[in-house]
Structures are given as structure tokens and as C-alpha cells.
Nucleic acid binder design. Sequence first.
RNA 1: CGGGGCGUAGCGCAGAUGGCUAGCGCGCUUGGUUCGGGACCAAGAGGUCGGCGGUUCAAAUCCGCCCGCCCCGACCA
Length: 585
Amino acid sequence: MRWTQAFIPTLKEDPADAEVVSHKLMVRAGMMRKIGAGIYTYLPLGWRTIRKVERIVREEMDRAGAQELLLPILSPSELWRESGRWNEYGKELMRVKDRHEREFALGPTHEEVITATVRGEVRSYRELPLCLYQIQTKFRDEVRPRFGVMRGREFTMKDAYSFHKDEKSLNDYYQVMHKAYSRIFTRCGLDFRAVLADPGIMGGKDTHEFMVLASSGESVVISCPDVECGYAATTDTAIGNPGAPSERIQPMEKLGEVHTPGQKTVEEVTAFLKVPPEKLIKTLVYHAGAKRVVVLIRGDRDVNEAKLQKALGAHEVLLADEATIKKITGAPLGFAGPVKLAASSGEVRIIADKLTIEGIRNGVTGANKADYHLTGVCEGRDFHVDEWHDLLLVREGDKCPNCHKTSLTAYRGIEVGQIFKLGKKYSDSMQATFSDEDGAAKPFVMGCYGIGVTRTVAAAIEQHNDEHGIIWPISIAPYHVEIVPMNVSDAGTMTVADDLYNTLWRNGIETIIDDRDERPGFKFKDADLIGIPLRVIVGPKGLAQGKVELKSRGAKETRLLGIEGAAEEIETMVKKTLDDLSVVR
RNA sequence: CGGGGCGUAGCGCAGAUGGCUAGCGCGCUUGGUUCGGGACCAAGAGGUCGGCGGUUCAAAUCCGCCCGCCCCGACCA
């Protein structure tokens, strides 16, 4: 591409509405423009990179034995009612009506459509396993689109669905996909981790998220630094392991009441009674849908609301307001406790964090009476818990729940992919069956596997940039090489530059030449911004010695190449770098 | 959805105690001088001040409603 003919509208200044670096750079580098909140036009440069990522995804999906197809974006509501997700999916599902008032969904994911496609067509276990994938625009009516393409309302996604005759086949294929995903993100030049995650609305059991490590990431990952252990999970799912509290072996003290005027928070009570926060039994009242529950957790820890939500089977949990607390505990906010609580309120269940509350002795808790707390509170003797769950919000420094040896570390990540074992959720509800060896109709065992393609591009920029702009991994760079002729009015310069440009293209090296009549500094700034991995400068300095200058985007130093052999040498470099990226650890 | 902020030229911003032809930088056009890290000079073009309504002799500026956008908290690739 000749820059004078290209549509690459670069910007000197950051766009006012961009916050994260990938968003700023994608706009500044002329890769995309915003059309509405979470809706973008991909300009030629951005589209080239997106297509590079898609190509890598296709190659690896094909290698994993999956076949590409294309499902419709628009799908009738009946399909979603069959699976139950017309109601379950909530407001995030974009819904439209046709002229006859028939309802449709704009696909946010395609379990329903693929299941409807496969059922009736795949009839025998002999045709299994089968994996189908597509790369397509998805729609989600996000509560808050943000960070450019990171969380858009319309985005490109690769989604794959596998069909199996049994769990074992699914488990095997899950590993194949795990490996394929690792290859894809490695080839895209990303530093990532596969972590255990929460299945959420997708249903199913096992699931891993592929996280690209980045400070701007929206997810927090907890992981064990011990490589052999390798435990890694999102904070929503990380299993608690706070160690055995020493209180459990202490002799039980007598239950006592103390006057604690105005001492409401854990910090206040801790300071007032001169006890450590581990002694406190924090008592929280939650709304879980229409119901209310009392949740207990040790004073120094926090409740993981995602775990609570799952434990209660609720769609949403919300801390109760003061009026509700007063109604349930009989005391103002800050003096709630489990002792004699369940008896007085009847239908309100007491849910407790198993790891921090079970067997706790001599704890401190609210007396359900204004300005009073109880001491010497023992679980089992003084209060009864209806349900035990792991409700702990795991944090950095906790012991690893897997190897029990090392302290966990926390870091932020961008979720670029997720693989799920769906099981029979959709095949059951949508009656998608096949005939097994014994001739009986059985529902398919399914898996599904997503990659946010546009998000992957943003994640790559988050990991590869400096104060001047993007530094593309060559595998997903819009072009491999940028030629910068110093002076376009100089015939000698342009002959060398054009020859090199033509030769490189002839040898399959994607090249852009900045043939604009601009000063060198101006072109260098744009070159840094758009981040093409290799830059060839054709100017008087080199030409005087019969050379051109080669510089990597990330590097400071330049190398001189003889004009004659330059094309060949560059070609070798590009191909070697591409090969290096395909090597999977 | 709740809380906070913003909307003035293609982009980034000033102007806000109502007052004359609404400014600045970048970008754009033309001419000239420049030319190894976003040059300089000169002359231009470009605006329903987000929209509608109200107050007023007079509204970018005050009031009301609406729309759009961004950020912070509960979801997800």
C-alpha cells in the first residue's frame, strides 16, 4: 500500500472520550472510529489486524478438527424460549420485532441456533464427535460499554460448538480446544494464562477463561506462584483456604453482653473491645430476589457476592438497607448477630462461610440490640447455621487451596477467550438427540468455545505499546514492513524505495510505503504510532554507502543493509519472526 | 440502573457575571521558504454553540424538558 492512496487518518492528540491505551491508540493510529457507544467502524488498518487474528483462529480451529460455518445473526424468539434463555438472558439480549410483531434476538452467542441446526441432521453416534465454528459479529446490550472495543455492544467473536456422545469424548475434546486456544494466543504474541472460571449464564460445569495479563483488565485473577501447582482462578471462583483459625481449639468462654455505644463497624468494635478482627463474626443481611438471608463471615474477610449468588441460586444479591436490617434483627445497622436471630424471624435463613465461621469459638458479634455486642460466642452452642457454603472472597496472600503451600498472588487480566463444558443443558431443553450404539435416543453432550476477536486486538495493544504508539507482534501487524523514503522528490531515493517495495510484495511480504511529501520527523512519528514491526529508511545517509537502514519498531538501533540484498534479508527476518511466534510453549 | 462529569469548526480546547462580526492550537486549501524525529511565513476556507421550548430589547451564556457521550459500582468474549 502506498500511503498517499491509503485511508489511514492518524491523530496527533488522544481522543477525548478514550481512557485506556488500546482505545486511544486504535483511534489515533487510524484503525477505527466510534459511531455510537460501544459501536465502531473498523478502518482499513484496523480491519487488516482483525483479519490477521481471524486467520490465526481459523488455522488453529481447523487444525483442531473444527469446521467453519456461518449461522444467522437474527434468530426467532421461539428458539430462545425453548432453551429458556428468552427470559433468562435478561436485558443484555438485543431484541427486535419484524413488521408482523414477531420477536427476534440479535445473536449474543449461538447455542440455540447451532443446536437447532444440528438436531435432526446428526442422527448417529457414528457422526460424533462434531465441532462447528463461525466468526461473526455478536450483539450484546451491555449495561455499560467501555474501553473502546474491549466491551462493545457489537463485536467480532469466534464461537465453536462441539457435540459428543458422552462425557469422556467431551473431556478429551476440551483438552484439544485448550491446546488450540493456547496456540492461538501464543501466535498472537500475547502473555496469557488459562484460569478456572465461573460458568455464568452459559450453564455447564468446567470452564476456563483465557486471560491476557494487563493492568487495565477488568477481571482479577488469583494464582499460585508455584509453577508445579499452577492453580489459577478468577476471584469469582477462587476457592477459599484461609487456614485453620486458632479459636477452634480454645476452651469455650461464657456468653457475655457488653455495652458498645455507637460502635458499628468491624474497625470500631475491634478498637473498642481491643480484640483482633478475626474474632468478629460479621453479620450481613442480603436481599436475594424476593427473599432475605443473613450471611455470616469472619470480621477480617469479605463476602464474595458471586459465590453467594450461586449458593442461593439467585439472579442478584444486594445488601439490605437499614430499614430491612432493623426489621430482621430488631437493631439498627451495626448490631446484627446470629444469636437468637433465626428463632425470632422464622423464614430468614442463616447462611455462613464454612471456612471462617464453622467451629468458631469465643467470637464477638452484635447483640441484635442497639449499642450492645456479645462476646464468647461459639458456633453450635450459641447459634445455629442453616446452610454452609464457601463464600469467601479470596485475596492475595491467602494460602493456595490446591497445594496448600504457597501464598496466592493477584493480577488483572483481560478475558479474551473462554471454553466451557456445556453438558446437556441445550440438548436436553431443545430435545437434540442421536442414536447411541444400543439404538437409544440420547441427548448430545456439548461443549462451547469462544474467542473475542476484536477484544484480542485491543489486548494485544495493551501489552505491546510505548509512549510513541503501538508495537505490533508481527503475526497480527497490519503490515510487516514500512518503507520510509526520506525525500520523495529525489528520484534516486524513490527508485530504491519503489524497487524494494515491489520486490517485497512479490515475495509475500506485506509492505506499506510512506510516499507522502512530508518531513522525515513527521513520517517517523506516524510510523511509531501505527507500529509496523520493521521499518526501512531510504535516505541520503545510507544511500551514500549503497545501503538502506533497517529498524525494528521496538528497538533503538538501526542496521545497514546493502541495497541489493535488502529484500531477501528482510524476507528472511519476517518469516523467522513469524515462525518464532508459532512455537507453543 | 444508581452516582459523577461533559456536549462550542474534522480533532483537542477556551469563552459561562447574558451584550457588538464566537475565539485559540492542530488539521485542511493556496503560494513561498524549509527538509534524518510531528518546520516556518503569508493569505484563505470551515460553526443551526447537541436538540426543542421558555425568560429577555438581547442567550453559547439563565431556566425546563429531551438526546448523545465519558467515568465509578452489580455482568461477560
